[in-house]
Design a protein around this nucleic acid. Structure first.
Lengths: 233, 233
DNA sequence: CATCATCATACTGCATGCAATAATTTGAAG
DNA sequence: CTTCAAATTATTGCATGCAGTATGATGATG
């Protein structure tokens, strides 16, 4: 009997999605980068049909933008979308923090600490991995809630945030300060829901701020206002 | 010059998605109903390829479930997924209420009142339309925030809720009490963010309760507990 | 009459091909 | 040397066909 080599087809599409998501989050793919179907198909060893389906999914997630008869491109979120994404992310991850503070197990705490330690290593070794692990930390937390839909949305919104940072953030530097992650874990370990939620929202706000995304009420760029100081007399 | 008849292809897929979403929300399609690709293609006048893409999208949204080599079916959310969906929905729509209380315009209030009036008519005339308009009310609110991502997630989660109600709710009766919608609009009209959020969360909790979904800590169905009263002596 | 194996049918998974549209190059004119 | 138009190439949009897997029917057997 032959070894079971056959892959789920749904998984073939999801695999490509996952690979592209990762490439986007790691900033190997940048907003505006073109994603031709056959190039994609060649890369992954599938036909355009499959590549196309993956692009459709990613478009639904907001990571890719499709326009008729045009090559798919990595999406460039508008500044409003970026801001909105972070605000929703804060709300959802506050839910995660609240939920976990009540239910987290010692094993999960250990796993989180290990993850943060891995981040610390990667932070020096590999920029791409550091960015990815920073996002993974949040996905890991969401997964620990055991709430499947919450996990799904947190994951999606985390990826979108990554894209927003790619578009508007400065070069990595410290998008996701490891120290802040550690504090979140500490609050969870104590079972302090308020502190956990506070650390989480503070952390995410800081990330958004670093991306200059949350600037309260984006300056309206009104010509008259700008020129006022230059008007003589 | 010929009339522009050509449709966006992305829209062809989205149109099918939209039609299926509506059929699901109106309970024309029920959890477990089969969705063969060619039957779908025939219905919409497209090939299986397109139908398949639509199914992929809907699966990503959790409305359809796909298993390799099996016909797609309308998803049957687990009770945990249903509960989770409602909890997330409450969080997101609280955001909507809060956001709108501060920014809503008189025109928007008028539009909302008209919508509620339409609901009242439909409530007597057409069960399917009543259900659809009830969901549309929430989508309409979300759209009014002008926050594109928030609108997207509220919409998605509202549809998922509809599916959950389809699976676990009793026959329509009053899933979405119109009176509760009216109170939300009133709170928004006053610009009272707290009241709006309160009415909204109360309303959604009530909807969830009617579906028997939010039963605090689903009874564990522990055999010993169940049998205890039957143990003699 | 019920149960199970075998075959026929239906359906999915995927690549490919054709038509239509955009992108790019080429070449001609200024 | 630049600019613009026409032709050429690249790419998308979509249907279809083939192979492989489930589903349902048929008939054999206990």
């Amino acid at each position: 009997m032959a070894v079971k080599v056959k892959q789920d087809s749904v998984d073939r599409v999801s695999q490509i999605c996952a690979a592209l998501r990762r490439a986007i989050i790691e900033r190997a793919l940048l907003p505006g980068d073109k994603l031709p179907e056959d190039a994609l198909g060649d890369s992954f060893g599938v036909s355009r049909t499959i590549a196309r389906q993956a692009l459709g999914q990613l478009a639904a997630e907001g990571l890719v933008s499709l326009r008729r008869n045009r090559k798919a491109v990595v999406a460039t979120p508008t500044i409003e979308e970026a801001r909105d994404t972070f605000e929703i992310r804060i709300a959802l991850e506050a839910l995660v923090a609240d939920c976990l503070a009540a239910s987290i197990t010692p094993e999960q705490i250990t796993e989180l600490k290990r993850h943060v330690a891995d981040q610390e290593v990667a932070d020096i070794a590999s920029e791409a991995e550091a960015i990815r692990l920073a996002t993974d930390f949040h996905v890991l937390l969401a997964g620990m809630t055991g709430r499947p839909i919450l996990e799904r949305y947190v994951t999606e919104v985390a990826y979108r945030s990554g894209l927003a940072l790619s578009a508007y953030g400065r070069p990595h530097s410290n998008d996701c300060a490891i120290e802040e992650h550690r504090k979140i874990v500490e609050a969870l370990e104590k079972g302090d829901a308020d502190a956990a939620a506070r650390e989480m929202t503070g952390h995410l706000s800081a990330v958004a701020d670093r991306a200059q995304v949350m600037t309260r009420e984006a300056p309206p760029r009104d010509l008259a206002t700008i020129l006022a100081p230059f008007v003589t007399s």
